[in-house]
Amino acid sequence: MEQLLATFHSLNGELNKIHKEACSEISVQQSTIMHEIQSRNEPSMQETARGLGMDITTFSRQVQTLVNGGYVKRKPYPGDRRIQILSLTDKGSKKVQQVDADILKQMKEALASMGEFEQEIIVQSLRQLHRILGKNSG
């Protein structure tokens, strides 16, 4: 189990490095927020923060920075003006596409020394791990 823990921390660090290298002008945390907004259909502030497991105060500060940077729009929910709905601006959508493309490029380069079968095994194993962890966290 110690090897599993060491692998977890090491892999997490390497993946964070890849994500950080793909981000320019925004932080990894902001990139993650923008990706979450993009993956949902006009989510509320609370819904998005909950989906990311983030404290609402920290989340609100990060969203405000993204709004100020022109990446995210906030608008009040028509039925309850206390609820803020989030969406990406064109600039935000382009930034998410750029970050995703950079991450994909780095991941392809990292896996290039492996055969197609080995790459598929890794991808399938990571999908299965994600499904299992998703069930356990909900």
Rank of each mutant, 00 (worst) to 15 (best):
R82C: 06
S60A: 15
Y71E: 11
V67H: 01
I83C: 02
R82M: 10
G69A: 05
L66S: 06
P78C: 00
V63A: 02
R61S: 09
R81F: 14
G70E: 05
T48K: 00
P76M: 04
Q46R: 09
I83V: 15
D80W: 03
E47S: 12
G51I: 08
N68Q: 11
R82S: 14
P76V: 07
R74I: 15
R50P: 00
L52Q: 08
V72T: 00
L86M: 06
R81I: 15
T57H: 06
R61W: 04
R50T: 12
V63K: 04
I83D: 06
R82D: 13
V72M: 05
Y71A: 13
G92L: 14
Y71N: 11
T57N: 07
L88V: 03
Y77A: 06
G53W: 10
G69D: 01
Q62A: 13
N68G: 00
Q62D: 11
D80L: 02
L52S: 09
I83R: 13
Q84E: 07
Q84I: 04
T65G: 04
D90C: 04
V67E: 05
K91N: 14
F59G: 01
T58G: 04
V63I: 12
Y71I: 14
Q46Y: 09
R61T: 15
L66P: 08
G51E: 01
Y77G: 01
T58Y: 06
P78Q: 11
Q84V: 03
P78G: 00
P78M: 03
G70F: 08
D90L: 12
D80E: 11
T58V: 07
F59V: 03
G70K: 05
K94G: 11
G92S: 13
I85G: 01
M54S: 06
G69P: 00
T89P: 01
S93Y: 12
K75N: 14
S60H: 07
Q64L: 08
G70L: 07
Y77F: 07
G92M: 14
T89D: 04
E47L: 10
R74P: 00
V72R: 02
P76E: 04
I85Y: 06
L52W: 08
V72S: 02
T57S: 09
K91M: 15
K73N: 14
Q84A: 06
D55N: 11
G69C: 01
D55G: 06
Q84D: 05
I85W: 08
R50Y: 06
G92E: 11
L52R: 09
E47P: 02
R50S: 10
I85P: 02
V67C: 03
S93K: 15
Q62W: 07
T65Q: 03
A49L: 02
G92I: 14
T48I: 03
S87F: 13
V67I: 13
G51L: 01
D55Q: 13
I56H: 09
R82G: 09
P78E: 12
T89Y: 03
F59A: 03
R81T: 15
S93E: 15
R74Y: 00
M54E: 11
